[in-house]
Design a protein around this nucleic acid. Structure first.
Lengths: 151, 151
DNA sequence: CTTGCAACGTGTAGCCACTACAGGAGCAAG
DNA sequence: CTTGCTCCTGTAGTGGCTACACGTTGCAAG
């Protein structure tokens, strides 16, 4: 069996590990172009669509937000252009990932300390509850206040 | 000056570093009980409210989802009960945090490799774009498919 | 007493990146 | 022709808030 030149939406979904609804969502949100349609109104995709969707999914797996994905997609359409922009986006994302790792590690330490100290007794003596209720934040990691999207 | 026994919503916000809208949102979503009101309709909080809000915020800072926070709050209302449940929740969360750290580290490695290999030339030769476009996923981290909420 | 203004009230919409339906139509195999 | 899968559109929901819009309350200064 050879590669088909046309794909139904379900084929694209299977080949890229994407849900059908997500592909339609990408179309509505301009990440995927509108494909041709059959007489009955079904979407007909080409190899180019498949490649583009695979690119999007791969970038998403790497945690790039969709705005970054959009920018990277624009770059793939200009292969003679300098790739400094792609580098900048990837470096920015790397920095963000490193920041999240750092915060998660501080968190991990605090959680580990919490559960290590829990003697499995009554709630009134529970270290987990105690730490959470500690209004003074004496044992707390010193977050800088701005918070951010997530730890 | 001594501690006031009653607080306006703005006082609670300042003392816990929470936005006023967030406090009202917690009330709508049953995390905070409905407080008394003044004749003019303004919310009047007590010390108990302040403590409860501080507890919620502290748990959120540690990344506990609201459903976990709800469960932990129920435990604080039963101080004679065993704290095994609190321990279970905290351990579960610790496991989740460790999983996220592991995935982020794999990600970090892949991103670092991407940008290290980018020669800042044309997009056609860019390693960043190339890795993303790699349909075979030959250089990809082996995610197990289920994905999860986020990397 | 009036005026000004911050803090408060409600209600709704938006964020991200999907996901999950409901309710119907197309289409291939048996 | 029926069965059963895939597909269509459209809408609403997720988590955990955040941001408005627009109206009211409450307090102090003039």
């Amino acid at each position: 069996m050879m590669e088909a030149a046309e794909y139904a939406i379900g084929d694209l979904a299977r080949r890229t590990g994407t849900k059908v609804e997500t592909i339609r969502w990408y179309e509505r949100n301009q990440l995927m172009p509108q494909p041709a349609r059959t007489a009955g109104g079904r979407r007909v995709y080409t190899r180019a669509h498949l490649d583009r969707l695979a690119f999007i999914r791969h970038a998403r797996e790497l945690g790039f937000p969709l705005d970054d994905v959009r920018a990277l997609l624009r770059l793939t359409d200009a292969p003679e252009h300098s790739c400094a922009e792609a580098d900048r986006i990837a470096r920015g994302h790397l920095t963000a990932v490193r920041g999240r790792i750092a915060r998660l590690r501080a968190l991990e330490a605090e959680l580990a300390r919490m559960v290590a100290d829990c003697g499995q007794g009554r709630v009134a003596d529970c270290r987990v509850i105690e730490v959470l209720a500690d209004h003074s934040h004496a044992n707390c990691l010193h977050t800088d206040g701005h918070g951010g999207p997530e730890v």
